[in-house]
């Protein structure tokens, strides 16, 4: 299954993914119009930095899904069709339990509704993640894990050149 994976060493912290994410979750899907919408769209990716490392983080779709377990209203659900965890906005009561248990801190509060939002893999865009398309340094990839791991091994071998 394809996952959103990151080569964070190339992240420059430009936040293009954050903007693209917000636009992808707007009504108009267009930057110029999105910034004027009455309910500003909520980004679901966060470029986090600790001074040394930048990392574009979004919902990791964990299998043990603490957010789903913590959700008392049943808003946070595992969708067996897509294998993704999605939020049913109608059911969300804004208790923020999921926010507290998420180990990555990637569940956001929608400021206008006080409900929660998280990466839905760009459901509206036929699961073609806008953050990946927006990344100018190609840090974000939407790839099969196998493929990503393979390129990681190649990088490792390249680094080993000359060692043996």
């Amino acid at each position: 299954m394809r996952q959103i994976l990151a080569r964070s060493e190339h992240c420059l912290g430009c936040k293009s993914c954050e903007l693209a994410c917000a636009v992808a979750h707007s009504t108009s899907k267009n930057l110029f119009e999105a910034i004027q919408e009455l309910k500003p769209p909520q980004k679901r990716i966060f470029v986090e930095s600790n001074g040394e490392l930048n990392f574009p983080l979004q919902c990791r779709q964990c299998l043990d899904s603490p957010c789903v377990h913590a959700c008392m209203s049943g808003a946070m659900q595992f969708d067996s069709n897509t294998g993704l965890i999605q939020v049913d906005e109608q059911k969300c009561v804004g208790c923020m339990m999921c926010v507290m248990v998420c180990p990555f801190g990637v569940i956001a509060e929608i400021s206008t509704t006080h409900k929660v939002a998280k990466c839905d893999r760009c459901q509206d865009l036929d699961y073609d993640p806008a953050c990946v398309a927006a990344c100018p340094t190609k840090v974000l990839e939407f790839v099969e894990v196998l493929e990503f791991a393979h390129s990681g091994r190649q990088t490792f071998l390249n680094q080993m050149k000359g060692v043996n």
């Binding site: 936040k15 293009s16 903007l19 930057l31 500003p40 980004k43």
Partner: peptide, 24 residues
């Protein structure tokens, strides 16, 4: 880049670059 497109990126001093979140 959306920040540049909207004109809300400032590089006029070396404390920056600074960007304003257009979504507030």
């Amino acid at each position: 880049c959306g920040f540049g497109t909207l004109g809300i990126c400032c590089r006029h001093c070396v404390q920056g670059p600074c960007r304003i979140d257009p979504f507030g």
